[in-house]
Design a binder for these strands. Sequence first.
DNA 1: CGACCGATCGTCT
DNA 2: GACGATCGGTCGA
Length: 201
Amino acid sequence: MKKLDKDFYLRKDVLLIAKKLLGKILVTKFDNVETSGRIVEVEAYAGTVDKASHAWSGKRTARNEVMYADGGVAYVYLCYGIHHLFNVVTNYKEIPHAVLIRGLEPVKGIEAMIERTGKKIFDSTLTRGPGNLSKALGIFTRHSGTSLQSKELFIAGDDFTFPKKQIGASPRIGVEYAAEHAIWPYRFYIKGNLFVSGKPK
DNA sequence: CGACCGATCGTCT
DNA sequence: GACGATCGGTCGA
């Protein structure tokens, strides 16, 4: 297992990066507790030209400023006052692209995840959905801006990859407000995987 | 099943 | 002062 280097994120094609993130392993190591999961669902957000993106039309605020950094850092924000959503910033400085991680298949530290989430048993809801997986891995808004080359929070790859034909594409979830951009097929997921959000098909 | 609804708060208008 | 890139519970068919 090898940490993805900075060049992985420093590329211009956010859709390509989103698809390549499927099968990679998101790792957190906070207070010496390691938790990790294999990525099975992602969504790409294409910056200033994407109405569903926080950076639509070049919008720039204290909250989304980190999206304008060089790729390879975390962008975490609070949604509905409850959920901390974890994104990977991609592309070069001033190009605010990001990939939202929406589903993980747990790999390591399941006990810790159960403790963090307060769940009684291990089932697919533990790391299914962006709010749930952040809670399970202990990711909060204070981690926004953290480099993914750090020891506490990073993404790694091993020799495993999902076969191409197992990857599905669909519109993104919960972005109806984005009008004509809401139908863009920028969501990628592993077909039939239990840790993919939404209804099974 | 599907539809609906309340929780909860930082962020932007 | 309004509103989410959500979740899980409840209610009715």
